[in-house]
């Protein structure tokens, strides 16, 4: 099947400067967008009559720091068009020194937990997200462990608990002795 070129052409017409990269692999189309334009173009792809990518199948994030690209993070949107029965993968390039992108919760309400997950594990902020909290890790966790520079065995979080010992069994003998003594407390 021929990869759909109308998607790329439609995006280039809508915002020529927004398309950073177009990649085709085994009939799968991946388009990387600048983050400043990403939300507007995703809305365009959802509503345009020729595209109608109405369903956000998945939203995830990747740390691509080892691939040598001009940006560190990619937020990945898998879109499905039921009207035209096809799929496309959209990526948003997010720099590492100021990691944020626009939230798409306005467009797809289902993105709310997935954006929280990307924020939790990668530390990418989503502007306009109504409730950007950690979703998987404990609230007091300090780091973002899916970043490539985070050590696999952590930074001591798994050692940071109080040590509970065996409780000492109650001593029965003083208990009986105390009952015989006059109660000094009253």
């Amino acid at each position: 099947m021929e990869p759909a070129t109308d998607i790329e052409q439609g995006l280039r017409r809508a915002a020529p400067e927004a398309v950073l990269d177009v990649h085709r692999f085994r009939d799968q189309l991946t388009i990387t967008l600048r983050r400043e334009h990403a939300k507007r173009l995703l809305g365009f792809m959802r509503d345009d009559a020729g595209l109608r990518f109405a369903f956000l199948s998945d939203l995830s994030g990747v740390d691509v720091v080892e691939l040598g690209r001009a940006w560190r993070f990619e937020v990945v949107y898998h879109l499905v068009s039921f009207d035209h029965n096809r799929r496309v993968r959209i990526k948003t390039a997010v720099p590492g020194d100021d990691p944020w992108t626009d939230s798409v919760v306005d467009l797809w309400k289902g993105a709310i937990w997935q954006e929280r997950e990307v924020f939790d594990l990668l530390g990418v902020g989503f502007r306009g997200h109504p409730d950007l909290r950690r979703i998987l890790l404990p609230d007091d966790f300090a780091d973002h462990p899916l970043r490539r520079d985070y050590p696999l065995r952590g930074k001591g979080e798994r050692e940071n608990f109080p040590v509970l010992g065996k409780p000492r069994p109650r001593d029965f003998v003083p208990l009986f002795a105390a009952a015989k003594e006059p109660n000094a407390g009253h």
Binding site: P145, L152, R153, G154, K155, E157, R158, F161
Partner: peptide, 15 residues
Amino acid sequence: FNTYAVVQGIDRFLP
């Protein structure tokens, strides 16, 4: 599961 997320034996913190 020798990762940041898993406690490496509950006996470190419990008797």
